[in-house]
Amino acid sequence: MGETFKANVIDHFNFWVAVVLMMIGLYAMITKNNLIKKLIGMSIFQTAIILFYVSAGVKDGATIPILEHHAAETEQVEAGEHVEGHPVANHEAHAINPDDYSNPLPHVLMLTAIVVGVATLGVALAVTQVIYKNYGTLEEDEILAKIKAAENDG
């Protein structure tokens, strides 16, 4: 029981929290009456998805995906030796091991997702300000009531 709990909950806690945050955001988007509260819920939903993807790129014992300067130099020297015809004896020892670095592909994809998310939030808040100017309220039920009243008058 204890081992199963550790393997399922502690080791994958990022994914559990990602799902919890996703459901909090979805609940807010569906049930909140205020438009700005809905938008905060949408942002939480987006960050939950980004959290899921970035967590998938994490490796145990890995560091940030930036090659150090001396690593690149070593590789150049080894390439020069190879051209001169010497056998590359310890190429394996100086080779860049991908297990030492976390996977940068989800990072790059989620960088785009963050920028798209803030653009969505900006446009949505601009639309919210126009709605407030026209209807004088941010509550969804009052806006719907005013739209219905305007339809009945016209």
Partner: peptide, 10 residues
């Protein structure tokens, strides 16, 4: 988590 570029942007 080692995603420093994402951290800067966030």
């Amino acid at each position: 988590m080692g995603a420093v570029d994402v951290a800067f942007t966030e």
